[in-house]
């Protein structure tokens, strides 16, 4: 069934991922900003804890405790150790005494060594927020495409590896939330370049094969503007000849050379990216929404960027 783009914000849990460097944190931050603006009580969480999310809202460093950063918008930074402690006390109902001393250290150790434990306390935290209904929407600035599958598949992996015990009992409801396509979705961010596109295609296949989580949308970031229509292109071709622009240059009192060069740069950059865009488009199933985000010329950072991107997202989503 074709999915409406606006559905994205009607989810309760959205993972934003993509190849490193494509701007996934910015998209996650802007998506959360937009959701909050549209009346959703939203939590956004940084998983890699590099501090980029805090910068995008221009707030100080984020911690594991959720902090309100705007009306209806809360932000936090994942800390697996803190999450593990919360998990032990809230979900496994372990008494306080066992959380100190060697037991806590043992869990830290197991978390860093045993497969899936670190991932499940991360993914478990988000699922738990959804289950408890603390927020209308939880948006995760998830690990990059290479690592996200390990995280999303963690409950299943634990299910297979751990045959008994409390941890296993906890995976069932997580799988229910992750597998409910109306509640949970993945957004892949790509740019129109070779590697981001091929990683997106690979990730789509891996999501299908290795997880029960559905892809909701693909965001194509940094799409360059089309400068000219066909007739205008002909006019521009004439301006590329230095002799023919002399009249204009004397009228303006300065050279057009750099301006023409810059336009040519835009045209060639856009052209070389079009092929990648087409590859991506043909690989994405038609029912998956594709959102095209314009190249932001500010290249700045901070809240201004977040607001710009949120506006562009709103326009693209038809708000």
């Amino acid at each position: 069934m074709p999915r409406c783009v606006a559905d994205l914000l009607d989810h309760q849990l959205v993972f934003v991922t993509g190849k490193g460097g494509v701007g996934k944190t910015t998209i996650a931050a802007a998506l959360a900003w937009l959701a909050a603006e549209r009346g959703k009580k939203t939590l956004v969480c940084d998983v890699d804890a590099r501090g980029d999310l805090a910068d995008l809202y221009e707030v100080g460093p984020l911690g594991f405790a959720e902090r309100q950063v705007a009306p209806r918008l809360w932000a936090m930074s994942m800390d697996t150790e803190a999450s593990l402690k919360q998990y032990l006390s809230l979900q496994l109902k372990l008494p306080l005494i066992t959380r100190i001393g060697p037991v806590a250290r043992m869990f830290d150790f197991v978390a860093s060594a045993a497969p899936g434990v670190r991932e499940i306390v991360t993914v478990g935290k988000f699922c738990w927020e959804v289950k408890e209904g603390h927020y209308d929407l939880v948006i995760v600035d998830a690990p990059s495409s290479g690592h996200v599958v390990g995280q999303l598949a963690a409950p299943q992996a634990i299910n297979e590896l751990v045959k008994v015990g409390l941890v296993r009992q906890q995976t069932g409801w997580m799988l229910d939330i992750l597998g409910d396509h109306d509640r949970t979705g993945v957004v892949i961010v790509a740019t129109p370049a070779e590697m981001p596109v091929s990683e997106t295609v690979e990730l789509m296949a891996r999501l299908d094969d290795e997880t029960n989580v559905a892809l909701s949308a693909v965001v194509v970031n940094r799409v360059l503007p089309e400068l000219f229509g066909r007739r205008e292109e002909e006019v521009f071709a004439r301006l590329e000849d230095p002799a023919s622009r002399r009249g204009i240059e004397s009228e303006l009192g300065g050279s057009l050379e750099s301006i023409v060069d810059a336009a040519r740069l835009t045209v060639t950059m856009r052209r070389s990216r079009t092929g990648h865009l087409e590859d991506l488009r043909s690989a994405v199933r038609p029912e998956i929404a594709m959102l095209y985000m314009p190249y932001l010329f500010s290249r700045g950072s901070g809240l201004r960027t977040t607001r710009h991107v949120a506006e562009a997202l709103a326009a693209e989503m038809g708000y």
Partner: peptide, 13 residues
Amino acid sequence: FYQVADRVLGSQF
């Protein structure tokens, strides 16, 4: 330590 570990992760794991 082991009692808790058993309860949480299961002894098989």
